[in-house]
Amino acid sequence: MDNKFESSQTFENLKKSFEDEAKLYFRYKFFLSVSEYEGLDKTSKILRDFSEGSLDNVNGSLDFLRNFKDPSSMVPIGNSTQNIASILQTEIEQTSEIYPQMAKVAREEGFTDVASWFDTLEKLKRNHVTRLKENQSV
């Protein structure tokens, strides 16, 4: 895999497949809870089976991408030191820019409960950043 791959449509498609399958995994899980509540055992089984399958699909795309770049942070997937650095980058962005900005917008738009949710996530991510940094220094 080289630069040609990075600029290819296939690379973009793998990223999209990774993202869509990851989303699908959580949608299956979420919908499973509803079908279990409704007592629909057969539907629940399908959703449970598919959610488990989706994980394989997510990992399958990552198997291709791992030799190149993490589709979220765009830094290479490598050993744990590199991977923690990659995750750390995402968590720092979330806590320092993304969630504060999202909370601000939500508050301006009058969605104060959603703003509080983003605030909560921002603080959780702050904790993650601390723990990841401690892990790095070990």
């Binding site: 409960d113 509080s116 949710w117 605030d119 909560t120 996530l121 603080k123 959780l124 702050r126 904790n127």
Partner: peptide
């Protein structure tokens, strides 16, 4: 702590749709 706040937010919001703030001590 900040670790259980998102988890608690989900529980409290499902229990009570009128929740608008999940305060933490610093807030």
């Amino acid at each position: 702590s900040e670790v259980d706040s998102a988890w608690m937010y989900r529980i409290f919001k499902k229990k009570q749709p009128l929740i608008f703030n999940m305060f933490q001590e610093e807030d």
